[in-house]
C-alpha cells in the first residue's frame, strides 16, 4: 500500500468528502488492477480462445482459422460424445450425492457433538491431512486397494466371504465413483462443519428445554443453518468433479469417458477444434450448475 497521493488541483465545487471518496476509489482500483489484468489475460482470454477455436476448421493434424460449425455438428451428431455428456452428468450427480451422504453426518458429529475445541480441531486437521499427499498418488492408491489382488479382495477372501475376487471393484465406474468421493468429500465436510459449528449451542439448548426432539431440532434449526455450507461444498465438489479426468483415466481402465477425458485425448491427437467444442460444452454445463447454486446462496456473504 503505497501512498497514492494524487492531489489534483481542487475544483471549488467538489467537497472534500467527494475528493476523499474519489481518491479511495482510485486507490482501490489501482490495487486491484494487476490482479484483474492477470485474470483477464490468462483466464478470460484463453476461455474466449476455446470458444473461438471451436469454430475453426479441423484438418487431420492441424487447425486453421476458417470459421465453420463442422466440429460442432460432428460432436452433436456422435453418440459417443453425447454419451460422454451423459456419463459426466451421471458421475457428477452420484459423486455429489455421495459426498453429501458421507460428509454431512461427519460434519454434524464434528461441528455439533464434539464440543472440545482441541478435539474438534484435531478431527478437522485429520480430514485435511490427506491433502498433503499428491492428488495423483491419492488416486493411484485406490489401485492396490480395489484390485483383484488388492486389499479388499484379499481380506474378503481370507474371511471366506467370497471365493472369487470381485472384479467390478477396479477398472469400472464404481472405482471412479469411490475414488472421487474419497478425494472430494472433504470439500463438503469443511464448509458444513464450519456452518454447524457457528450455531449457538444455547439455541439448541433452548429448543431442547422446550421439549423439541432431536428430529425437530435438526429439521428446524440445524438443517436450515447448515444449508449455506452444503451449497458452498456442493459448488466446490461440482466444479472439481465436472472438470475431472485424471481419476477416470487412472481407475476406470478407459471404461469411463468424461468430457475431461475427451478433451485430453483429442488434444493428444491434435484435434484442437474438437477439444475446444468439448471444452465449450463443459463450460456451459459448469456455468449452469454454478448459476443454479448461486441463485440459492450468495457466495460473497458466506466466504
Amino acid at each position: 500500500m503505497t501512498a497514492l497521493s494524487t492531489d489534483s488541483p481542487m475544483p471549488t465545487e467538489t467537497s472534500p468528502a467527494q475528493l476523499r471518496e474519489r481518491k479511495d476509489r482510485r486507490r482501490a482500483w489501482l490495487l486491484l488492477s494487476p490482479g484483474l489484468l492477470w485474470m483477464a489475460l490468462f483466464m478470460v482470454l484463453p476461455m474466449c480462445m476455446v470458444v473461438y477455436v471451436s469454430f475453426w476448421t479441423q484438418t487431420t493434424f492441424s487447425v486453421n482459422s476458417t470459421l465453420t460449425t463442422a466440429s460442432w455438428e460432428r460432436f452433436l451428431g456422435s453418440a459417443t460424445y453425447l454419451h460422454a455428456i451423459g456419463t459426466t452428468l451421471r458421475v457428477w450427480a452420484i459423486v455429489l450425492a455421495a459426498t453429501l451422504i458421507v460428509g454431512y453426518p461427519v460434519a454434524l458429529y464434528i461441528g455439533l457433538f464434539v464440543r472440545n475445541k482441541t478435539l474438534q480441531t484435531a478431527l478437522l486437521v485429520a480430514c485435511v491431512i490427506p491433502f498433503w499427499t499428491s492428488f495423483l498418488i491419492r488416486v493411484i492408491a485406490w489401485r492396490p486397494m480395489l484390485g483383484t489382488e488388492g486389499a479388499i479382495n484379499t481380506i474378503l477372501m481370507k474371511l471366506g466371504l467370497i471365493h472369487e475376487p470381485l472384479t467390478f471393484l477396479l477398472f469400472s465406474e464404481f472405482s471412479v465413483l469411490v475414488g472421487m468421493t474419497q478425494i472430494y468429500c472433504v470439500f463438503m465436510v469443511g464448509p458444513v462443519t464450519f456452518m454447524i459449528g457457528r450455531i449457538d449451542p444455547s439455541v439448541i439448548e433452548a429448543a431442547r428445554d422446550l421439549g423439541a426432539s432431536f428430529g425437530t431440532i435438526f429439521r428446524r434449526i440445524i438443517l436450515p443453518l447448515s444449508l449455506p455450507g452444503v451449497m458452498v461444498g456442493a459448488i466446490f465438489v461440482s466444479v472439481m468433479v465436472l472438470g475431472e479426468f485424471a481419476t477416470a483415466a487412472s481407475l476406470s481402465g478407459r471404461k469411463v469417458n468424461l468430457l475431461g477425458n475427451i478433451i485430453v485425448s483429442q488434444v493428444g491427437s491434435l484435434k484442437w477444434a474438437f477439444a475446444a467444442v468439448a471444452g465449450v460444452v463443459l463450460t456451459l454445463i459448469i456455468t449452469a450448475v454454478i448459476a443454479l447454486a448461486l441463485r440459492i446462496v450468495d457466495l460473497r456473504k458466506e466466504m
Partner: peptide, 8 residues
C-alpha cells in the same frame, strides 16, 4: 476447471 484454461 484446469483442463479448460489449460486448453485455452
Amino acid at each position: 476447471p484446469g483442463v479448460l484454461v489449460g486448453l485455452g
